[in-house]
């Protein structure tokens, strides 16, 4: 006897697949990081697209009380002036010696007014202080108070162009991370020059580091040197680590 199903299995599967496709489409029409044919990177991009599609973009990371501030390990590069280190930077050492009076953050790429921003200039901009939780990919967390200028404000000062897609942050220890426009203009994404009420300590990225509060710790680049705004994804090859790390 032929059964009269309301929906056939094929219809259900096709409807489901096209539904998922429709859901992913707005994410896919934007530029995505490369996957290098690597299934792990495909999974990372899936996570990125789903987060950008389903999560409210401007939601704020939780902020804490002053009494919640905790001990905070310094990992990765902890002193770029260390000559024995693979990531030794003579230039940074000189800036450090001069208490960063001659240090400047270069902002380049798709901006109308490229140029260098001194520490004093950055400190003269409207600032934001936030007590947030740092989540390290290793599994630990720590809470600190960060003071700095919102990255979005600085990018607007520099006259960021409408075709901008990525903000690439280069550091004195040869580290580089890029973020998309949603993270770059998030109110809690700041160029931090203060930590726990003092100048940013050397171990934590003096004189200025990035804070990206809705991603894992390694996106928050320390020892900033220059920021380059691009419309293309700057491909440094498969590092073995996920580019997007909101998870």
């Amino acid at each position: 006897m032929k059964k009269n199903y309301l929906f056939t299995r094929r219809q259900i599967i096709l409807t489901g697949l096209s539904g998922i496709g429709g859901l992913l489409l707005p994410g896919c029409s934007k530029k995505l990081p490369p996957t290098y044919g690597n299934i792990l990177r495909m999974g990372d991009v899936l996570t990125y697209v789903v987060h950008r599609t389903l999560l409210p973009g401007q939601s704020m990371a939780r902020e804490y009380q002053h009494s919640d501030i905790s001990s905070f390990p310094a990992t990765g590069t902890t002193n770029p002036a260390d000559e024995t280190s693979k990531y030794y930077s003579e230039a940074w050492g000189k800036f450090h010696h001069g208490e960063f009076a001659n240090w400047g953050l270069s902002i380049e790429g798709l901006v109308a007014r490229p140029g260098s921003y001194s520490l004093a200039t950055l400190q003269s901009f409207p600032n934001r202080t936030q007590i947030t939780r740092h989540t390290c990919e290793e599994g630990w967390t720590a809470i600190a108070e960060w003071t700095g200028v919102p990255l979005g404000y600085v990018l607007q000062q520099a006259g960021i162009q409408p075709n901008a897609r990525f903000v690439n942050c280069y550091a004195y220890d040869d580290y580089m991370e890029s973020i998309d426009m949603l993270d770059a203009f998030h109110p809690q994404t700041i160029l931090a020059y203060g930590m726990n009420g003092r100048n940013l300590p050397v171990q934590h990225g003096a004189p200025v580091r990035l804070r990206v509060e809705k991603q894992i710790g390694y996106k928050s680049v320390k020892y900033l040197k220059r920021i380059v705004v691009t419309d293309e994804f700057v491909d440094v090859g498969d590092t073995g680590w996920s580019w997007y790390n909101g998870i």
């Binding site: 792990l40 905070f72 990992t75 902890t78 990919e137 290793e138 171990q203 934590h204 680590w241 996920s242």
Partner: peptide, 20 residues
């Protein structure tokens, strides 16, 4: 609360571990 710098080269395979 304190801070300290890590000098130890830890075991860390989280690059593929986390993504997988």
């Amino acid at each position: 609360p304190i801070t300290a710098s890590r000098t130890y080269d830890i075991f860390n395979q989280n690059g593929w571990g986390r993504s997988l």
